[in-house]
Simulated scan of single mutants.
Amino acid sequence: MTLALFLVTLLCIALALGAGMSLAWLAWRRTKNSGWVDTVWTFSVGIVGLAGALLPPTGADAIGSRRAMVAAFACLWALRLGLHIARRTRGITDDPRYARLLQGWGADAPRQMFVLLQKQALVSIPLGLAMVLAAANPQPALGPQDWLAVVVMAVAIAGEATADAQLRRFAADNRGPDNPGRKVCEVGLWRWSRHPNYFFEWLGWLAYPLLAIGAWQWGWLALAAPVCMYWLLAYVSGVPPLEEHMLATRGDAYRAYQRRTSTFFPLPPGMKPRVTSWD
C-alpha cells in the first residue's frame, strides 16, 4: 500500500463515518430520542468494515479466509450490538448521557449535537481503519495469529452478549414500584466488573490487529483501534458519564459497589480494585 492509497483509504473511511453520523443526527431530530445515535453509529462502523472486507484497498484476494473473517466479524458485531441498542432505545425516551448535554446546550442543541456526532465520526476512524487493514493484509496463508483473532472475537461477542442479557434480566426482575428490589446489578459478570459489557466491547477490537499485523508495515496501525476504544470507553463516553448517572440515581448503593468491584477489567469478586478518578 502506497502512502497515497493509504490517504485515500483514510478519506473514504472518514467520509463514510461522517455520512453515518449525519444520519444519526437526522434520526435524533426526527425521534427526539438520542438513543438512536449509538444504533446508527454501530451499523455505520459495521458497514465500513464490511466494505473494507469486500473491497480492500490493496486488492488482497484471500476472500475465502482473512477477508471473510473480517466480513463475518463486522456483521456479527454490528448486528448483535446494533439490535441490542435498538431494543433498549425503544424502551426509553432518551439516553441520559446525551440528555444531560442537550439540556445544557439549550436552543443551540441541534448545532452542538451535529458537531458532537461529527467528532464521534472522527475518533471512530481508527476503528474503521483497523478493519480495512485486517482485510487488506497481503499475507496469503492463515496462521495461529489469525485463528487467535477468531477466538478473541468469539469470546468478546459472547461475553458482551452475556453481560447485556444479565443486566436486562436484572432490570426486569427489579422493575416497578411494587418490586423495587436491589438498586445495583451484581449478578454474573457484573460481580467481576462494573462495566463488563464495555470490557468485552474493547476486547473484540484486539482481533483486528491480530489479523492485520504480519508481513507488511501498515498492519501495525491497526493497534490504534483497541487503544482508541479503551480511551473512549474508559475515559470519555463510556464509564465516566455512566458512573456519574449511576451515582446520581443509585447513591450509596452504587458507592458501595464501586468500593468492592473493579471498574473495567474483570477481577475476582472482593479483590480490591484499582483506584480511579471516577471511584
Rank of each mutant, 00 (worst) to 15 (best):
I125D: 01
L210H: 04
M69K: 07
D173P: 05
R30Q: 03
A99D: 02
A19I: 02
R67I: 14
L3P: 07
R66V: 11
G91M: 06
L76A: 09
V150F: 07
A107T: 11
I92R: 12
W192G: 05
P56A: 08
L55N: 04
A253Q: 11
R194C: 13
A86T: 14
F199D: 09
G251F: 06
F43H: 08
M271R: 11
V45Y: 11
P196G: 04
P241C: 00
L122Y: 00
G270Q: 05
L79C: 10
A161N: 06
S262E: 10
T39S: 09
W205V: 05
M229I: 11
D61Q: 13
G82P: 11
C12M: 08
M229W: 04
L116I: 00
A158H: 02
T261H: 14
G52F: 01
L129Y: 09
D95N: 14
A109R: 10
R80M: 13
A62D: 14
G104M: 14
L142N: 10
G270E: 12
A24D: 02
A4C: 01
W25R: 03
Y98A: 03
C228F: 02
T2A: 05
G49C: 03
L223P: 01
E160Q: 09
T261P: 14
D38N: 00
R182H: 11
L23A: 11
C185Y: 02
S44G: 08
V40E: 06
V40P: 06
A154K: 01
W36I: 07
M271E: 11
R100H: 09
N179V: 09
A136V: 01
P266A: 08
L127K: 00
G49Q: 01
S193P: 02
V150W: 03
P57Q: 07
Y235Q: 02
L247H: 07
A163Y: 00
A121F: 07
M153V: 07
R260H: 13
N179L: 15
V48F: 00
A253P: 05
G106S: 10
V132P: 06
W216Y: 09
Y198N: 00
L17N: 06
G204V: 04
V40W: 01
A136Q: 05
F73E: 06
R29P: 11
T276W: 15
M271C: 13
L26D: 12
I13D: 03
G188I: 08
A149E: 02
W25C: 00
